[in-house]
Write a protein that binds this DNA or RNA. Structure first.
Ligand code: FES
Ligand code: FES
Lengths: 134, 134
DNA sequence: TATTTATCCTTCCGGTTTAGTAGGAAAAAA
DNA sequence: TTTTTTCCTACTAAACCGGAAGGATAAATA
């Protein structure tokens, strides 16, 4: 039950942008790539859906780069993971009952719901700001 | 970040055995397969590592089947998942620091540790007995 | 205007994992 | 000796993962 590199790298990317929030110049991917030791090419891919979701804004050309579109305390880790990994529930039926045939009589459903809630409460509801200062 | 069918089906399998604990006759896979609507062939595969780990005992031949090797309150969901899915941490470095090059300076490490603990406390430490009565 | 620095856009790919299936051997009970 | 059940070894189609490649477009600067 692993988080993929999309979720992990994407979160690091967002935290870099959060740390840069309020600064005058946007942060280019080349700089983030250097700091995080992740290839620019891969970061480019990860940032597409984050921008599409409205979490990030970009400025092209020299001295361009990316900035958060909102305050770091208005973006949660859960949003970031949802965008990059899709539904983060450890078991799909938690969000989509039709996934399991035996949904009604399943002896493990409550178990997975408990796990899902624990994950949500612990990190999904955490904001970038909180994650930075943690 | 999904649990695979191994972990999900395996847990259901173990809960069936837990419900059968103390009964006179062992529970054959054909019966578990019927109740859970999972193929016998697949259950056979899942039960191998569970038996190897000493959680289960078997009796061959007619009227044979499987029984828990321990009390349902001495087996945790975490043990079952560990056996079937391997390390369950959402991010490997939580258990194996050498996994991440930037371990020292990583801005997300605490985050994943928090998530890992939340998962452990919520369900991994739960026993089969507790899971049954939940 | 030419160059440089960036984002933006599309495509491709090898390797691993997942979710099983298939076929039969061995043992125990009836 | 037939039936039931575990036990054992292979096999595989499809999906997913973790990127790399190659270039187009836009903006700032010299
Ligand atoms: S695992 Fe989905 S309902 Fe049980
Ligand atoms: S993700 Fe492993 S140290 Fe940061």
């Amino acid at each position: 039950m692993k988080l993929s590199t999309r979720g992990r790298y994407g979160t690091r990317l967002m935290l870099q942008l959060a740390a840069n929030y309020g600064k005058k110049t946007p942060l280019p991917l080349t700089e983030i790539a250097r700091r995080e030791e992740i290839s620019v090419k891969y970061l480019e891919q990860l940032i597409i859906p984050l921008k599409a979701a409205g979490l990030i804004e970009s400025r092209r050309g020299a001295h361009g780069g990316y900035v958060l579109a909102k305050d770091p305390d208005e973006i949660t880790i859960g949003q970031v993971l949802q965008i990059l990994e899709g539904n983060i529930s450890p078991v799909p039926c938690v969000k989509d009952p039709s996934f399991c045939i035996k949904y009604e009589t399943c002896n493990t459903r409550k178990l997975w719901e408990t796990m899902d809630k624990a994950i949500s409460k612990s990190v999904c509801e955490m904001t970038l700001k909180e994650a930075l200062s943690a």
